[in-house]
Design a protein around this nucleic acid. Structure first.
Lengths: 233, 233
DNA sequence: ATAACTTTGTGTTATAAAACATATCTAATG
DNA sequence: CATTAGATATGTTTTATAACACAAAGTTAT
């Protein structure tokens, strides 16, 4: 079981965190009024329509950001990994959430106080610039996904999603197994296709020796071929 | 013909510009090293892969931000209206452009110097927050579009795009005619469909008295029905 | 252990939309 | 003014993929 108490420290001090260069005093300010909470796999962290109360940071686990389409089919618009913000788009846009966040693994989420965070970034413009860079980067990813999910065919979309998973969560120690164990439904919702077609196409990739699929464990056997499938569309 | 010389003043002083509350001195700093340029309808402003040299602001006209899909089909990912930044995503992500910008009307674009802009926003955190808000807002729009363009059917997608045009450029004085005169191809590229299907579906909407289409002029005759088509998908 | 439920897997059918094929209309060019 | 090119329009064919149907395997609860 993960250590919920240490979660805040993790968010503030993990290398790569936007907060890592804060002074102890500045970190204390953020820590004083923070809360952390454990979420079981499948549990909802926030829901579309709610108002962000603070800013959330994923300390441990994996989280999907989902939107409901007209057909009722769910679409994964983003995947979060530790350590990173979640729900910060709505926070900085000063809007209610336009999507929901659900843990896809047991996760721990810290919440920092709104005013404390704003005071911190006001004092430290370089942090603001880092957050801005992150938002700009996300926007680029989103534009890319819009084009890829609309224009590529099933094989290309699935290959794209698998590479996106690799990019986000990396490989296990073997350097081949994707460090993410999603349901077929989640893979489908990430790739903009039905669950049946995700299952079917995974089988085909397995038959073609591009992947080695054992339940939810997906091994990328031939990454260059996967890349080619992705690029051809 | 628009006044290219006055373009910079327009970018800095138009109500709603993030710069409108700068002091004269601060405006002078930005003005000193700025350039403005006129672009004819159809002309390219920047191209995918190029490095942003400064930050661009659309003073007059209309601009589409496009990405090339695998099939070669172009996808409009954003539409810019005056007064607003263009290419600021790449600027703040510190990346090369991931999309191209093309004038869809005769346009005037100002370019502010990189260092002068950074100095300005460093001195004025509230401007940074406004730009951040704008990026966060764009990201929400992009996530929405991802879901809508992938999940809705042709009628829903076209209705969506027309309402997006209304939202971006508004109506003419009659309160019905969309203040944007795109080619059928551009409408198709905005709606993620072939040109033929855009033309066909516009005709159908016209037959159904939802629209009154006269060449490139599109009058929204029954906005509530258009909204319903959009919502039903 | 058995039942009930969920997830995964695979074959078949139906359909939305792309691709293709022309035709007409409009705008630019010599 | 005639010629050409580009944009708009519409009908037909083809195809990718959703929708459906069902079976098998795993998981959870009683």
């Amino acid at each position: 079981m993960v250590d919920v108490i240490q979660a805040c420290k993790t968010c503030l001090e993990t290398p790569g965190s936007v907060f890592e260069n804060l002074s102890q005093e500045e970190k204390d300010l953020l820590t004083r009024r923070h809360t952390s909470r454990f979420y079981k796999k499948g549990e909802m962290i926030y829901q579309i329509g709610e108002r962000p109360v603070g800013i959330l940071c994923l300390a441990f686990g994996k989280v999907k950001i989902i939107k409901e389409g007209v057909t009722g089919r769910e679409q994964i618009v983003r995947l979060a990994r530790p350590v990173g913000f979640i729900g910060y788009r709505a926070f900085f846009a000063e809007e209610n959430y336009l999507a929901s966040a659900v843990a896809i693994e047991d996760s721990v989420v810290c919440q920092f106080n709104r005013e404390d965070l704003l005071a911190t970034i006001h004092k430290r413009p370089e942090i603001t610039m880092l957050i801005m860079k992150s938002l700009a980067n996300e926007l680029g990813i989103s534009h890319d996904r819009t084009v890829n999910l609309t224009q590529k065919h099933i094989r290309g979309r699935l290959a794209e999603s698998l590479l996106f998973l690799v990019n986000t969560y990396g490989f296990e120690e073997d350097g081949m197994t994707i460090r993410a164990y999603l349901s077929r439904e989640d893979i489908a919702n990430l790739s903009n296709m039905t669950t049946s077609n995700a299952i079917r196409t995974l089988s085909i990739f397995s038959d073609e020796d591009v992947l080695d699929v054992q339940g939810r464990s997906i091994k990328v056997v031939n990454e260059s071929r996967l890349l080619r499938i992705c690029e051809l569309g």
